[in-house]
Amino acid sequence: MNTALNHTSMKVNPDMPVAVAEGSGDLESPTHEAGEMACSHHEPADESILLEQLDDLLPEYVQKPGGLIPALQVCQSMFGYLPQEALKRISEAFGKSYSEVTGVVSFYSFFSVVPRGKHLIRVCLGTACYVRGGKEVLQALKKDTGIDVGETTEDRLFSLDAGRCFGACGLAPAVLVDENMHKRVNASKTASILENYRTSEGGKSHGDG
């Protein structure tokens, strides 16, 4: 089961909220629980059921200092993105204004407020990856998928994102697909990488990072 919080790259990814690294130990158990319920990520479930599950989960996070970001992460792992109705409920549960909550959401590139595809492709454009051709890799992926950064393919199979340094500079240029790190990617390799995800469920075995 893929959930955002199970990302192995979490601790090395500065694009993600700092609180994850600090709080990941504490969060492990509720995260897994949330992950179990988060089948929607792959098989879209009724959002109203997920919203009820979210309501049940939130009180625990409200009590924790700095609980907002972990709550947003769990929410994203359940829905695959952060729906506005979920953000409203989070804002009410935490007694924080809606503008403050969306301010946090929009600060971190990790969070998405639009539904995402089954597989999230993230191209590193940090310095090392950039000088070794990250930009060309991104161009190739745009061409392969037919979408721009921040968009999702019509068949909801892929979403495309760009990040700034995944902490894997030795593997530059690096591309993360879901939790799999693909190293030393070049423009001619991208199509075959994607093909693996098109043909197999999850594509887990194809990561080489």
Binding site: Y98, S99, T102, G103, S106
Partner: peptide
């Protein structure tokens, strides 16, 4: 509240 970040930051309401 500040929305987004860096040069793109807008001080304003949600989204």
């Amino acid at each position: 509240h500040p929305q987004s970040r860096g040069f793109d930051t807008v001080i304003g309401p949600a989204f």
